[in-house]
Amino acid sequence: MAATVLLGPYVSEYYYLATYTILQFIVLGTAWNILGGYGGYVNFGTAGFFAIGCYTTIVLNKIFPMPLFFEMLAAAVTAGLVGLGTGYLTLRLRGVFFSIATLALAIVLQTLVVNWSFVGGARGVYVIRPPISGVLMAFFGFFVPNGISYVQFLVVLMVALTMFAVLAAWAVEKSWIGIGLAAIRDDESAAETSGVPSLRLKLIATTMSGAIMGMAGAPFPYYVTYVDPATAFGLAIAVNSIAMPLVGGTATWWGPVVGAILLGSAQQILTVTISSAANLFIVGVLLVVFLTAAPRGVVGIVRSWKRGRK
């Protein structure tokens, strides 16, 4: 955080935008991994939860402007509740049926938004960035004489959110919830007969996962300043948040972080050097390479390397 603020005056704004995108994907990948990696339930609907976060901000910004922090909380609650509700309706479905249901959820939500003119409908909506509150400005002014730009503020916010998400994932992984989810991932019936309350654990996971995805979406309207359903529900969001944990490794909290940094930076570099169309292409290629050569991702490679040295 200090580095971001201190480097402020010396670095082009592009780097902040790139950093924001990568951080956003660390949060999304980490959130996806709580259910998908630990519990083995593949959620194709990440974009749906992300968009709930975006549109919560848009709605609140229109009817009752408030500091972004509270909009993020509201987004977490909304997306968390949708996660819980979806869980209740779909978690009796196992494996691929659950995945299809999450995909359907995203499509249903997108259709709703497209037809909801209050938030711009299919045309999309322009969002005006609110001023950074005086207290925050004074805080940052302590580090940097001229204060910080709004994008820099968003990056700082995203760093904080990333730390929160990773910490939450780490806590889940190390707790009884993580152990129970691992048992469910390996064999749900055997887990039940070992006393694991599988439905309850899966609901905790969908709620947490959804809430964090919503929080990742909440600052997005202020980052792009123009949001339409095609962006908020974009394929890139759903694909990236699955691909990044898979490339990094799904078994641990740091897998999605490594995966997001790796894939996220590669995408940024390719977008600048070759073309922005190469964006999803590189995800596809890396995904195929990792799934065939290293199905346990970077985490798996590191682990077997460690074992080899012993």
Partner: peptide, 30 residues
């Protein structure tokens, strides 16, 4: 099922269903 297991009704499966991602001890620890 999980509550029945908690109350003391345990079973084995005809075709063994271990938790394959865990060690043997971790299997027992669940």
């Amino acid at each position: 099922a999980w509550l029945r297991a908690r109350r003391g009704l345990a079973r084995t499966y005809q075709i063994p269903r271990p938790f394959r991602g865990m060690t043997i001890q971790e299997n027992i620890e669940v």
